[in-house]
Design a protein around this nucleic acid. Structure first.
Lengths: 179, 179
DNA sequence: TGTACATCAGTGAACGCGCGTTCACTGATGTAC
DNA sequence: TGTACATCAGTGAACGCGCGTTCACTGATGTAC
C-alpha cells in the first residue's frame, strides 16, 4: 500500500468532511476544491473526472470498514459470536465515520457509482454468507443479502441518532440467529 | 377524492414513465414537459416548483401501495397470515410499478423529499408494528423498522429481477416470524 | 559549478451546457347585462 | 343575441446560475553534460 499523493489525499479528505456536513448532492467539484484549498484545475490533475473521484471516495470508506471487520473477527473461532463481532465492527465503524449517511445511502442514487456500491454490498454479503455453516449455499447467500440490507439500515438509524441503538441491535441478533 | 386536473395528471404520469426508464436524477423539468408534451411554463401552472412535483409523485406512489395493502389484509383475521398477505401486497405492488427503483431508492438522496420518504416509511412501520401482538410496544416498533428496510430491499431485488423471488420471500417470512 | 532541458503538480480564467424559474402574453370559456 | 369583461390553463422565449471540464501557463525540482 504505497503512500498516496498528499494533494490527492487532501481532496479525498475534503470530500469526507463535506459529506459529513451535508449530502452527496453538494459534493460539487467547486465545493471540494474550496474545502481542500486548491485550484479547480488541481482536481483534474489527480482525478479523471468527478465520477472517478466519487468512486475513489467510496472505495476508501469501504476498505477501511472491511479492514476493521477483519481485525475484529480474526481472533475468533467460527460461530455466532464471531458473526456478531464482525457486524458490531461494521456498525461501530459506521458510527465513527460521520459521512456514512451520504456515502452509504445517497450515493446509491448517483448512477455513476451504483456499480461500485453493489460490488461492495455483494462483498459484504459473501463475507457474511461464508460465516453461516449452511448446508445450502444458495439459501445462505439469499439470507445474507437481506441481512446486509438490514445492517445498513441499522447503521443509518444509528448515524442519525449519533450513538449505538442497543434495542435495534438486539433485534438484529435475533434476525441473524433466525436467518 | 376529487378528480385531478388532466394536465397535472399527465405531468405526473410522464414522471412515472421517466422514472421507469431511467433514474430520478434524469427527472428534469425539461424531460418531464417533453414527455408530457406541454410547454415548460405549464409545469409551473400546476406545481410550485420541482420539489413540490417530486413530493406529489411520491405521495401518489405510496398512496396506491397503501391502498393495495389495505384491500389485501382487510378480510383476514389478525395473525401471521394477515402479515404475510400485507407484505406480499406491498411486494407485488412494487413489482407492478416499474418506477419503484427510482422512487423507492434514489429519491432518498434528494434532500427535498427525504422527509416525505421517512414519513411514509414510518407509516409502514407503524402499520406492521400494529400487527404484532407485542407485549412491549417499543420492541415491536424497533423490529418493524428493521423489517420495513428489509422488505424495501427485497422489493428492489425483485424490481431488478423482474419477478417474485420466492427464496428471498421465504427468508423474509422466517425473519418476520423471528422478529 | 553552471547551463540547458525535462518533468510534473499546481493554477485560474474561460468555455459551453443544461438546469430551474420567470413573465408578458394568448386564447378559449364562462358570466353579466 | 350581442358586447364587455373576468378567469385561468397554457405558451415559449429569456433569464441568471452553477456546474464539470479544458487549457495555456507557472514554477519548483530533478537530470545531463
Amino acid at each position: 500500500m504505497s503512500a498516496p499523493h498528499p494533494t490527492r489525499q487532501a481532496l479525498l479528505d475534503a470530500g469526507v468532511r463535506l459529506a459529513e456536513a451535508s449530502s452527496l448532492a453538494n459534493l460539487s467539484v467547486n465545493a471540494i476544491v474550496g474545502k481542500a484549498d486548491v485550484a479547480k484545475g488541481t482536481f483534474y490533475v489527480h482525478f479523471a473526472d468527478r465520477k472517478a473521484y466519487l468512486v475513489a471516495l467510496h472505495r476508501g470508506f469501504h476498505d477501511d470498514l472491511l479492514a476493521q471487520i477483519r481485525v475484529a473477527i480474526e481472533p475468533l473461532p467460527p460461530g455466532n459470536e464471531r458473526i456478531r463481532a464482525g457486524v458490531s465492527a461494521y456498525l461501530d465503524g459506521c458510527l465513527k465515520a460521520r459521512a456514512v449517511k451520504a456515502l452509504l445511502l445517497e450515493s446509491r442514487a448517483e448512477p455513476e457509482i451504483t456499480n461500485e456500491v453493489q460490488k461492495r454490498n455483494r462483498a459484504f454479503s459473501r463475507l457474511l454468507a461464508s460465516e453461516f455453516e449452511a448446508a445450502d449455499a444458495v439459501e445462505a447467500a439469499g439470507a445474507a443479502r437481506l441481512l446486509v440490507a438490514t445492517i445498513a439500515e441499522l447503521a443509518l438509524a444509528e448515524a442519525e441518532k449519533g450513538n449505538p441503538d442497543q434495542a435495534l441491535r438486539r433485534h438484529l441478533w435475533r434476525m441473524l440467529a433466525a436467518r
